[in-house]
């Protein structure tokens, strides 16, 4: 199996704002061609991490290598190869979007505006309007076009769908998948669990400046297990389900609820030996997983 190329290698990244901890001891690796979701509530340290990677703020400690380059020393080269959509941004209100984007594109040494035009058309953005006249959603679209127009290898997105309507969000998710297919690496912070679940390959969860978990979304869900609810015709012996892979067993009359983390085949066979009236098997959502992490203070579920 071909080894995936490391694009972002963050080790022990720490940023203090005076005595306040922004992020502390953060370790994270992002590989080529993946969409990494960076999940956490407001103030958890998502934006600080991204901005430290781009040297917009200076790290207090730790090592950040992007494309094998040092985030501070080689900041210009990193930014040449990285697109970025800030979470809260503005542009020049009195200038046309086209003028602004061409200026930003020219900073990357690009004068060909074909991709910019295509992206604007795709996201239904009028380039000939002044930025100050745009709605919140259209400003966000301008930001998205800006992040992707230089066709860079790595794209960092901070809350990218903020202000987009649901249809445009769907379109954006589809666009992200296309970009991944084209070999782009995308590092995307969000507090919207559904969007991370929909587009990301892996997720990193951050809380109070500390990384809680980094995992493939499917593996994470597997780890969380499935919720099995069975209504039996008659009451059953609880001892039946004392087996490997069954957790949080509870019984309410003839209704049995359990969390199955492994050995599902054996559990189903055991259940089916009884007379069943109703049965459901639910996969936990990322939201449940996220809340579990937070309620447990970051311990493994």
């Amino acid at each position: 199996m071909k080894k995936k190329k490391l694009v972002m290698d963050i080790r022990g990244l720490t940023k203090y704002y005076g005595k306040v901890v922004g992020i502390e001891g953060l370790d994270l690796k992002v590989y080529e061609g993946e969409i990494m979701g960076f999940l956490g509530p407001n103030g958890a340290g998502k934006t600080t991490t991204i901005r430290a990677c781009l040297d917009l703020i200076h790290k207090s400690d730790g090592v950040v290598n992007i494309f094998g380059l040092d985030s501070h020393r080689d900041s210009l080269e990193i930014r040449r190869r990285t697109g970025y959509l800030p979470g809260d941004f503005g542009m020049y209100p009195d200038l046309k979007v086209r003028t602004i984007l061409k200026y930003l594109l020219s900073q990357n040494g690009i004068s060909d505006t074909t991709r910019m035009e295509e992206l604007a058309r795709s996201f239904e953005l009028d380039l000939d309007r002044k930025y100050g006249e745009l709605s919140k959603g259209n400003r966000q679209k301008a930001g998205i076009v800006q992040a992707f127009m230089a066709d860079q290898d790595l794209i960092m997105l901070d809350e990218p769908t903020s202000g987009l309507d649901p249809l445009m969000q769907k379109k954006f998710y589809g666009f992200l998948r296309e970009e991944r297919e084209n070999g782009k690496t995308i590092f995307m912070s969000s507090h919207i669990l559904a969007e991370v679940e929909e587009v990301c390959d892996r997720v990193a969860i951050i809380r109070n400046g500390h990384l809680q978990v980094v995992e493939n979304i499917h593996s994470l869900k597997e780890k969380m297990g499935k919720k099995l609810v069975v209504e039996f015709e008659n009451s059953v012996d609880t001892g039946l389900f004392e087996m490997e892979g069954v957790n949080d067993f509870s019984i309410d009359g003839r209704m049995v609820t359990m969390i199955v983390t492994s050995n599902l085949d054996e559990v189903i066979k055991t259940v089916s030996r009884q007379n069943i009236i109703n049965m459901s098997l639910e996969t936990f959502s990322l939201e449940h997983l996220f809340l579990t992490y937070y309620s447990r203070g970051g311990r493994d579920p």
């Binding site: 917009l56 210009l76 080269e77 809260d88 503005g90 542009m91 930003l104 990357n108 930001g143």
Partner: peptide, 14 residues
């Protein structure tokens, strides 16, 4: 104040 520093410095501008 108009929050465009991040975008300006996301380009290779020293």
């Amino acid at each position: 104040q108009e929050k465009r520093m991040d975008i300006i410095f996301s380009t290779p501008l020293s």
